[in-house]
Amino acid sequence: MYDRARPFAARVRWAKKETRDTSTFALWIEDEAIRRQYTFSPGQFNMLSVPGIGEAAISISSGPEDGPLLHTIRVAGNVTSAISGICASNIVGMRGPFGNGWPMQEVEGKRLIVIAGGLGMAPLRPVVRHLIKSGMGHGTDERPVLIYGARSPRDILFRHEFQSFGRLFDVHITVDKADPHEHWKGRTGLIPPILEEIPLHGPGTIAFLCGPEVMMKCLINEFMLRGMPAEQIFLSLERNMNCAMGTCGHCMFGPKFVCKDGPVFRYSEVRQFMAVQEI
């Protein structure tokens, strides 16, 4: 197995601007032996680095069956700024994949509800694509649901793909606010009211959530009020990642290392810590 502590070179094949502050980068692992060994599952992440600047944890936004390895990055700190400035054919460092990923085996035979807020769509896009490509979720009586909330119409990620996601999923998109000049004809407002309209059938439903913690907490409340078991709700958490291998301590959430025990957690496992401020 290749070294997980030392990056390998990954070449930027192409970069595509998604929104004003977010771009998708297709990366190609240079070393052939590593490229062959490299496999990942939806919800895992890589540590991408720009030598001399530093390293950041970035979700893989492509599905395991897709060709290029995609990373959708919002400019936030010094590393993401540096990566966003890298043009096609240049090199970044990559370590990974890390984390547990979404429990795809639990989706079988259940109706999946995927809810993403903002950049939270990046680690959930592989789930959606994997379901479409693998034929999972086609057999259930009810269509799987995809709810996506963005700040404004121009912040919608992967905007041209939702139509194709709609062939399998029941898609709902909302934006927090839309300026008149944007001619937004869709829904405005937060995500919870959309969830309220969706019928839930207890144990036959499973939910994957990723987005701001305040959004996930609201959605969990709604799910719990309507009798969804805490074991059927999964959420992907964000924390400061540094080593990605559970030896640096930065990403701790209570006793959990978000990098290796997560980033995806069953709500029943982390419930007691979600209730504590600044844990």
């Binding site: 680095s49 530093g54 540094n242 080593c243």
Partner: peptide, 9 residues
């Protein structure tokens, strides 16, 4: 044991 890794250039 907590630590931070960083680039030194």
């Amino acid at each position: 044991f907590c630590n931070t890794s960083y680039d030194y250039a």
